[in-house]
Simulated scan of single mutants.
Amino acid sequence: MEFKDRLKKARKARKVSQVRLAEMTGLDQTTISNLETGKVQSTSKVVQIAHELQVSSRWLATGEGDMEDNVAEFRSKQAPKGDELEMLDTIVTEGDEPLRPDEVMLPVFREVEFSAGSGSTQVIENHGAQERFSLPRLSRAGVQPENAALAIAKGDSMEDTILDGATLGIDKGTRHVIDGKIYALDHGGMLRVKRLYRMPIDRIRLSSDNSDEYPDEVYHVHSEEAPRIIGRVFWWENFD
């Protein structure tokens, strides 16, 4: 069964029309039709389509597993438990081969030095850098592809949780502070990774897991010195 067949099967099982599915996903009806006829082979909204049709995104994208796998995960919409991130399998891939239906290209945040050699930096998304990422993995984390990005951690402030050089997955759709969760920050042109905590009087606390060497920092959220939240870190991959 090809992607077009799985999409049609899922849509009919959900008893929605192509027009309705287009409304649910933000696509147009012509795109849905082209996907079901095979004129268009894939879409970056596979996860969202699977979510709306209440089927497994892994099954929809690749045909692997059962159509109903992990549906409970979509229906519950529960946030990850605990303060620690979930360590997942390696899912960033390299190469120039065409994207598979279960892959998406994600932008990479990086520090870029200003021109004229001033030594100052700014945090830029997708400054010519992209990496492949697994759509099913985004589905597991509940992250929409359009909200996902990657970055590389620097320094030892988050050891032993996140090591220097670790690849990070960032959900730009989650910029509100959830106490104890880890976020990627643009702090005056520096890309930083910290746990955040809300404090009274519109203040925010930045905490490092390596607290012996990196004490907590407190900022007023409206201060010019306060960091800008890029998004919540939902995945990381450490390298020894």
Results as ranks from 00 to 15, higher is better:
1 M>H: 05
6 R>L: 00
9 K>F: 03
11 R>T: 08
13 A>N: 03
13 A>P: 00
14 R>E: 04
14 R>M: 04
14 R>F: 05
17 S>K: 11
19 V>E: 14
20 R>D: 12
21 L>R: 05
23 E>T: 15
27 L>T: 03
31 T>E: 06
33 S>N: 10
35 L>D: 02
35 L>K: 08
36 E>F: 00
38 G>I: 13
46 V>G: 02
50 A>N: 01
52 E>P: 07
55 V>T: 02
56 S>P: 01
57 S>R: 02
58 R>G: 04
58 R>L: 05
59 W>E: 02
60 L>T: 00
63 G>M: 00
64 E>P: 00
64 E>R: 08
67 M>E: 10
67 M>L: 02
69 D>C: 00
70 N>F: 15
73 E>K: 13
73 E>L: 14
73 E>R: 14
76 S>G: 09
79 A>V: 06
83 D>H: 11
83 D>F: 09
84 E>L: 11
85 L>H: 01
85 L>Y: 04
86 E>D: 08
89 D>K: 01
91 I>T: 14
92 V>T: 06
92 V>Y: 09
93 T>I: 06
94 E>Y: 10
95 G>T: 04
98 P>Y: 04
101 P>G: 04
101 P>H: 05
101 P>K: 07
106 L>F: 03
108 V>G: 02
114 F>E: 14
116 A>H: 07
125 E>Q: 13
127 H>E: 15
127 H>C: 12
128 G>A: 12
128 G>K: 14
131 E>K: 14
133 F>P: 06
136 P>K: 00
139 S>K: 00
140 R>L: 07
141 A>F: 02
143 V>T: 02
143 V>Q: 03
143 V>S: 03
144 Q>M: 09
145 P>I: 06
146 E>D: 10
149 A>V: 01
152 I>P: 09
153 A>S: 12
157 S>N: 11
161 T>R: 12
164 D>M: 04
166 A>P: 04
167 T>R: 12
171 D>C: 03
174 T>K: 15
174 T>C: 13
175 R>Y: 05
183 Y>M: 09
189 G>I: 07
192 R>Q: 08
193 V>R: 09
193 V>Q: 08
195 R>C: 04
196 L>Y: 01
201 I>P: 04
202 D>W: 03
205 R>T: 09
208 S>T: 00
209 D>R: 11
213 E>F: 15
215 P>S: 12
220 H>T: 06
221 V>E: 15
224 E>S: 12
225 E>D: 12
228 R>T: 15
229 I>C: 10
229 I>P: 09
231 G>R: 00
233 V>W: 05
237 E>V: 05
239 F>W: 10
240 D>M: 15
